[in-house]
Amino acid sequence: MSAIETILVAMLAGCLRVSTPFLFVSLGECLTEKSGRINLGNEGALVLGAMVAYAVSYQTGNPWLGVLGGAAAGGALGLLHGGLCTLARVNDVAMGIAIMLAGTGMAFFFGKPYVQPSAPQLPSIPLGFWSDVPRIRSALNVSPLFFLGIAAAFGLYYIFRGTRMGLRIRIVGDSADAARALGLPIERIRLFATGAGSALAGIGGAFLSLSYPGSWNEGLSSGQGLMAVALVVFARWNPLACIGAALLFGAAGALGPSLQTVGITWGYYLFYAAPYVATLVMLIVTVAPGRALAGMPGELSIGR
């Protein structure tokens, strides 16, 4: 294989492996932000979800129960954030950071006994059965959570576009005044969207601990939850675009190691930063001065 092919295969594999947590967290963040609230605490939900998923999988022997546990733990943290932000004058950006700290703290604290044992992992789907090339076979060993994430993206897209619930979330997110005029329960809808969003982030964490890299330790997350905030902007609050953004971030993450394998060893720190540069460039190129970002919910505190 030529160097270019090697990099392409590696980036494809990286896409499929690394992107899933990005996808779940960005979908969760997207859902929350659509209701007009921002949640930086999703990093905490991701880490707590990863720990709980690993612990449940180890205790019960069933990794799917682990995924449920991760979602529940993330969701609980989201409800806490959502509930506290319901109180008047509580700032959601700052509270998110506090929740992130509390969530990672709890995950590290209660995760101590699970660093050493190996928990049962989620099975992966061998989509590369047709190929004789081992690296393609392994690249196409895809976690079922990846497809669940894609399905969730389409599901969210449909919910926002075609259902009453989605419409209500969007109205609440775009204009609290309009929502009030329509008699919508603003705070309850936001609470639901924040809880559900963090539950998705928790599933992203479950992917980290039960699929890839498939391990629990305190260095598991490298800030995927925080990065999701940038990713959602990148995706313009569109769940389908979140898929593309997550794949792109995943591929960019795989770029650094694969470049080294073909002998490009200069500046790996800079290659590791590629996704952020891409986000910044995207923002600069596509945002027009004097008007809000297309697709941005009007009630979002970071938009005001």
Partner: peptide, 18 residues
């Protein structure tokens, strides 16, 4: 590039196996 980076270590391992 770092002493503790779970996902990068996994990516590097996979990349080397590939």
């Amino acid at each position: 590039g770092d002493w503790s980076m779970a996902v990068k270590e996994a990516e590097a391992t996979n990349s080397l196996v590939d």
